[in-house]
């Protein structure tokens, strides 16, 4: 067994994987883990090389586009301690191509695919559950606290959809933001966030939506359990229809 360490950032992990796959003819005999701050480090540290990381990603994209997508969503999950699984997942992907995602009996493949699916599912959910509020200056703001770091693909989705309005997304957990105005999509961070004032007609529109939400349910078929399993309570905080219930 050969042991390697990396710094645990996505670039760090990917560049280490790139190097290992280049150097070792049998990566099955290699393990990779994230460096921890202990006195006794076991293994050889591979320094981060963003070019190497990019290189690996484009190779994967070419050989197994589905696996590259899986990797992208896996990264959004910001999972720690999975560098070794990732190494062996990518090794399998380069060997088998896109059908690798069906190889769920392989432990590393299953680990990565499972995490990746969760991130993809939250992204899909947030495409529906995100709520914008109109601000006094006419722009729209949506706040969220997702489990996964999905602001980038989410903003992209809304840049195709809500093109005619000026909007902001704000991830309160990570203090990251995205904005769209006149065809330009931007990303950044907001350290000091103060909730801006709402437009004067905002409450009126919200009341309409709340009324619709109440009326559309069939009274004899109340099913709070089903509702919560489809729409977990952790998302209710920013749901307009769940305010003041």
């Amino acid at each position: 067994m050969v042991k390697y360490l990396c710094d645990g950032t996505s670039d760090g992990t990917l560049s280490a994987i790139g190097l290992i796959l280049q150097e070792h003819s049998d990566p099955g005999l290699v393990t990779l883990s994230e460096r921890e701050d202990t006195l006794f480090e076991e293994g050889m540290f591979i320094a981060t090389d963003p070019l190497k990381a990019e290189d690996l990603f484009s190779r994967l994209k070419e050989k197994a586009p589905d696996a590259a997508r899986t990797l992208y969503f896996f990264m959004l999950a910001e999972q720690e301690g999975m560098a070794n699984s990732l190494l062996h997942y990518i090794e399998q992907a380069l060997q088998h191509g896109d059908k690798v995602n069906g190889y769920l009996t392989h432990p590393a493949v299953r680990d990565i695919v499972t995490v990746s699916r969760k991130a993809a599912r939250e992204l899909h959910r947030m495409k529906g559950l995100l709520r914008f509020e109109k601000l006094r200056d006419g722009a729209y703001l949506a706040q969220m606290e997702p489990d996964h770091n999905i602001i980038q693909p989410l903003a992209y989705h809304f840049s195709r959809r809500l093109r005619a309005q000026h909007w902001f997304l704000y991830d309160r957990k990570r203090r990251t933001a995205s904005s769209w105005n006149k065809g330009e999509l931007r990303f950044g961070t907001i350290e000091q966030f103060t909730t801006p004032a709402l437009s004067e007609d905002e409450k009126e529109v919200q009341a309409m939506w709340q009324a619709f939400f109440k009326t559309i349910a069939i009274p004899d078929r109340k099913n709070p359990r089903l509702q919560k399993s489809n729409m977990p309570m952790k998302y209710w905080k920013y749901l307009t229809e769940k305010q003041g219930e």
Binding site: G128, R161, Q165, A217, N223, Q227
Partner: peptide
Amino acid sequence: TGNTSQSGICHSWSDDG
């Protein structure tokens, strides 16, 4: 404004689930 999604998107779930 607006596009459609191939796979369909749920925006909420009413009290009947």
